[in-house]
Structures are given as C-alpha cells and as structure tokens.
Design a protein around this nucleic acid. Structure first.
Lengths: 162, 162
DNA sequence: AAATTTTTTGGAGTCAACCCAAATTTGTTT
DNA sequence: AAACAAATTTGGGTTGACTCCAAAAAATTT
C-alpha cells in the first residue's frame, strides 16, 4: 500500500522513545495536575475519579482529557477512560521530578515539607526543564525528595505530591 | 458634619502605614510587571512609557492602570499619569525583593544571572510573601542580589530585574 | 430488558489580557 | 487663540483557559 513508508517512520520513532524537545512549559498548571494524577494512578483512569479528586464537574474533566489526548499525552477511549501515552508517561515523570526537586530545594530554606509542597504546587508549571535539570544536577541528583517513600494518597487528595 | 469620625479613622490608618495583610499573591504576573515598572521609574509615569516597555497597546495599559488604581496600588490622574500609593510602594518593594531573592537563590544552583532572572520572572508571582520571608531569613537577608548595583535599564527593557 | 450510573456533548459564563477605532484631553505651533 | 498633533481614555470586541449546567449517549447494574 501507499503508506508503508509512514508506518516505517512511525516504527523508528516509537522505538527510539525520546521526546527531548519539550521545554517543561507546555502544560498549564491545571493540565499538569490532570497528568500527574493520571500518572500517579497507573493504568486506566476514569473520568469520575479525576473529577472528584480535582473537584471539577465531570464535563470539565471530559473536555480537558480530550485536549490532553489531542496534544498526545493521553490515549482516550470514549466512555472507557484514559491512560498515558509514552510521551505522556515521560512528561509526567518530568512533572513529578520537577515537583520533588523544587520542594526539596525549598525545604532547605526554612519551609516545612507541607509548606514547600504547597508553595511549589502553585508555581512549578512555570519552571523550565532546563532550570530543573541544572538544579537537579547541582544538588547531585538526590534520590529521595521530601517525600521519597511516603504514601502519596494524602498528597493526591490535596492536589500535590510530597 | 456627619462624617467627622470617618475622617479621623482614615487619619489614624494612614499614619500607621502598615499593610501587613498581603500574601504576595494578590497580583497577577502581568499586573506585577506594571507595578514593578512604575516603581523602577520613580515618580509619575505616563501611559505611553509603560506601553512601549511592556509592549502592549496604550489602551490596554490605560485599563490596567485603572484596575491597579482601583485596587489601591496607584494614584491615577486621568490623562496625566500614575504614581504609587503608599501601599503600592510597599507592595512594589516586596515584588522587587521577591524577584531578587529568588533570582539569587537560583544562581546558587547552576543558573546564570540571566537564566535565573528569566526563570524567576515567569513564576515569581506565585511565590507567597511567607515563603519569600523564610527564604530571605534562611539566606541571612543578603543585601546584594545578583544585580545589586547594576543599572536596571536593560532589565526593565526585557521586562525583568537583574 | 429496564433502570441507574457514568461519560460526553452542546451551550454558555467568567476572567484576564489583549487590540482596534473613536472620542476626549493635553500640548504645540503658528 | 485657534488649529493641529500627540497622548490618553473609552467603547466595543476577541481570545484562551477554565468552569458549570442540562441533555444526550453509552456503559453498568439489577
């Protein structure tokens, strides 16, 4: 058929699995919340779950999910739920790392874990990947944030990660 | 007259000159830009000046100025210009301090002055006064930011402070 | 299969930030 | 001082992000 070469291209692309082009500023704070929640849940997530956690009407969630799917972060099977695409997974990992690095950073300056977490949740979406990487590097790539092995249940409920 | 007591109240209030109730999250990033620019200019500032610096239509500036005046940050004399109220002055001082503390902080983690400044400009509006005070305290209230005695001309032009 | 629940769609509102065009005021020139 | 030019404001309108409500559609439960 005529589109064999396109299939080939997609194959190569998927196999390399790197999307190094993102700046970290692609998603609004709200959209990032959606993505982080879905990431945290692992596997398929239903609209209602997200709605009740993020405290918005299901119709709002449904529309946002469509947008995130269109942008390539999610697979959305209508009436069934969403899960992360490979890109979404990679991006969500960045989102969580960013949150944790910045939270850890702030706890080094007199903020409690909770304060740092809350503070960072407000602005993290505007910190670039480059900056996060530099900070991360400078901190020696800490494996344990202010929240390492802590259960994230509570955090998820409050809309941020510890 | 009937409103003597109100005048008296206002007198006391103005004389105490403290507005300790702000969280630091009152102004949007954009509004904060306006306030910082006006602060930097010292004295009365004209609409055109702000417009050309912030790269927006004068009509946009005019409307924003009205909003900032209504909120109590500016004195706005129609067709003449604006200057900071006492509250506006106090708030602008906080805005600049916040910018500089955060920029200084980021330069300690591998970002250049310019990178830190640009990065911080994007998110500073979402960092609370409490957090800034804690960080400031923890850093020993540094008198010199990454920009202490540097002329701020260039910075103003780029929309941020060094 | 019918009833109930979940999800989506259609329609619409709010809010911040923006621009254009027209009106108003100020400043400048003759 | 009148006329013109420049700056400022006002009126009206757009966009994008986020939101909700009501109705339709699909899935699940009974």
């Amino acid at each position: 058929m005529a589109n064999n070469k396109y299939q080939f291209f997609v194959f190569i692309y998927m196999n390399e699995q790197n999307y190094p082009e993102f700046t970290g500023l692609e998603l609004s704070p709200r959209k990032a919340d959606y993505l982080k929640f879905i990431f945290e849940k692992k596997g398929t997530v239903k609209t209602t779950e997200i709605s009740s956690c993020l405290q918005v009407d299901p119709s709002t969630t449904s529309k946002t999910l469509t947008e995130l799917a269109t942008a390539g972060y999610l697979n959305h099977v209508l009436y069934r739920g969403v899960d992360l695409t490979e890109m979404g997974m990679e991006y969500a990992e960045f989102l969580v790392r960013r949150h944790r690095i910045l939270s850890l950073l702030f706890t080094h300056y007199g903020l409690s874990t909770e304060e740092a977490c809350a503070e960072v949740s407000r602005f993290e979406a505007f910190v670039s990947r480059d900056a996060v990487n530099k900070i991360c590097n400078s901190m020696g790539h800490p494996m344990v944030g202010v929240c390492g092995e802590i259960s994230h249940e509570k955090c998820i409920h409050e809309g941020h990660y510890h």
